[in-house]
C-alpha cells in the first residue's frame, strides 16, 4: 500500500508534496498512546466498529510511514530515466513500470514487509486500545498476563520473541541488504 504513495513522492514534485510526506510520517512522530486512544474514540466509540477491523486499520496506519519510507528509499536508488528509456524502446508507460520499475522495487517492498511485520507484531500502545474480547495481540496479552501472574512464562516467551526478531532481521539483512533502506 505504501507503493503508490512512495512512487508519487519520489517521482513528482507536486504542490503540497512536502506536506503529504509529513502526514505520512506522523504516526512515527506522535506517541503510540495518543494514536491508540484517538483511534479507540474514533473507531469503537463513534464508529461502532468490529474489534478485528479496528485493530487491522490501526496497525495499517502505524505501518504506513515505514513502508512509504523504505520503498521511497529503494526508488531513490533507481535512475528516474530508466522509465523513459523503456518507453523510448517501445514499452507503454504501464509496461515500462511493470518491467523496469517494479522489479527494482522488490527488495524495498520485501524490506518494508519485514519491517512492517516486526513493528506491528511488537506494537503495544495502539494494540492496547484497539484489542477487545477475543481479539488481542501477543504483546498485549503478555502485558495483561504479567499484571496477574508472575512466573517465568513471560520471560521465556520474551526470550523467544527477541530471538525471533533478531533472526528475522538478520535474514532480511542478508537477503535484501535491509540496512540500506532504513
Amino acid at each position: 500500500m505504501g507503493m503508490p504513495v512512495a512512487y508519487a513522492l519520489t517521482r513528482f514534485q507536486f504542490a503540497g508534496s512536502g506536506m503529504v510526506e509529513t502526514v505520512f510520517s506522523a504516526p512515527i512522530l506522535v506517541p503510540g498512546l495518543v494514536i491508540g486512544f484517538a483511534m479507540l474514540n474514533f473507531f469503537v466509540l463513534l464508529g461502532d466498529m468490529q474489534v478485528m477491523t479496528g485493530l487491522f486499520i490501526g496497525h495499517t496506519a502505524i505501518l504506513f510511514p515505514y513502508s512509504v519510507r523504505v520503498i521511497s528509499a529503494s526508488l531513490r536508488n533507481l535512475d528516474p530515466y530508466v522509465e523513459d528509456a523503456a518507453v523510448s524502446l517501445g514499452a507503454n508507460r504501464l509496461r515500462g513500470f511493470v518491467l523496469v520499475v517494479l522489479p527494482n522495487m522488490q527488495a524495498g517492498i520485501a524490506a518494508a514487509f519485514v519491517l512492517g511485520f516486526i513493528t506491528s507484531f511488537n506494537n503495544v500502545p495502539v494494540s492496547l486500545f484497539l484489542s477487545g474480547p477475543g481479539v488481542t495481540t501477543l504483546p498485549v496479552s503478555m502485558l495483561s498476563y504479567l499484571e496477574y501472574y508472575f512466573d517465568p512464562t513471560i520471560a521465556a516467551l520474551s526470550t523467544l520473541l527477541v530471538i525471533f526478531t533478531v533472526v528475522l532481521v538478520q535474514t532480511a539483512e542478508r537477503l535484501l541488504g535491509l540496512s540500506q533502506y532504513v
Binding site: D79, V82, D84, A85, A86, S88, A91, N92, V100, N104
Partner: peptide, 20 residues
C-alpha cells in the same frame, strides 16, 4: 505520436540501464 511508438533511439547522460 506517443514516445513508445516513435522508433527513436535514446541515450541518456546517466545511461539509464535496467539494473535488474
Amino acid at each position: 505520436l506517443p514516445p513508445n511508438k516513435r522508433d527513436i533511439g535514446l541515450v541518456f547522460q546517466s545511461y539509464a540501464l535496467f539494473p535488474h
